[in-house]
């Protein structure tokens, strides 16, 4: 019995209470399901990219579009608190990009993504990347309707990020160790330790080391996208 959780509250005989047993994110989850149906109908693979700010999501997308733009039709939904900067970087690669500016909101939710989808011609898209707001906490709690969650872990951040942010890294279907070209100069990032931390939160997600800047390890990532996109056709 305690005063914090309410387990000491005994219902009064005449109390009028309703048992609900419904998730708090019910409305979001419902909208996410709706988005997923949209993607399915148009044969679109939707990938939600999550990471801390500056882990290299936009740079990864730029390099990915350059490498895959000829084979797959890509579109991007960009989430940021402010500015169109990232969407402009993507558009400069000749790919449609819808910028969602969230104001002070720290994450994208399914409703914001749904509004953005109305600005895209999904019939002309094979792979939709949703670049979430840079944040290792909040985005993990909101289903957007994506098929796959990809979490980026950049080498300067340290290999223990999965242990520090277990909710985020537990949600990841794939972990990309970005800025891997820096591994040779960083003595405090051990890729094996990063993998161990991901396993300790019971996540079987593969880890891929890559560098969007040098191209190191990009083949494995591109192959992974091709395979996932192919399996949905």
């Amino acid at each position: 019995m305690c005063d914090t959780c309410g387990c000491n509250v005994t219902p009064a005989a005449d109390e009028h209470a309703v048992e609900v047993l419904k998730g708090l994110l019910d409305a979001n989850d419902h909208e996410a399901l709706h988005n997923r149906e949209h993607f399915q109908r148009h044969n679109v693979l939707a990938i939600n990219l999550m990471s801390s700010p500056g882990a290299g999501k936009t740079a990864l997308l730029e390099a990915t579009i350059e490498a895959l733009g000829g084979d797959l039709r890509i579109a991007v939904v960009e989430g940021d608190l402010e500015t169109e900067n990232d969407a402009e970087r993507i558009r400069a690669k000749g790919v449609p990009a819808i910028q969602i500016t969230t104001g002070s909101a720290c994450h994208l939710d399914a409703h914001m993504v749904h509004d953005a989808l109305h600005e895209l011609e999904l019939d002309d898209v094979d792979v939709l990347f949703i670049e979430n707001v840079g944040n290792l906490v909040c985005p993990a709690s909101f289903d957007l309707g994506q098929h796959i969650n990809v979490a980026l872990l950049s080498t300067p951040e340290g290999d223990d990020k999965p242990a520090k942010y277990p909710v985020m890294f537990r949600a990841a279907d794939l972990v990309l160790v970005t800025k891997s070209d820096l591994l040779e100069v960083l003595d405090d990032f051990d890729p094996d330790a990063a993998e161990r931390h991901v396993r300790e939160i019971a996540n079987p997600a593969p880890l891929l080391k890559l560098s969007a800047r040098t191209g190191l390890g990009m083949d494995g990532w591109l192959e992974w996208i091709r395979r996932e996109a192919g399996s949905r056709e």
Partner: peptide, 27 residues
Amino acid sequence: NNLVCASCGDWRTTLISGDELILQRVV
């Protein structure tokens, strides 16, 4: 940040409880 099995130490576990966010009851 440590969901490994306390019994055998394997990391391949399934979460039974701990990630819920549920409105239980309203008076």
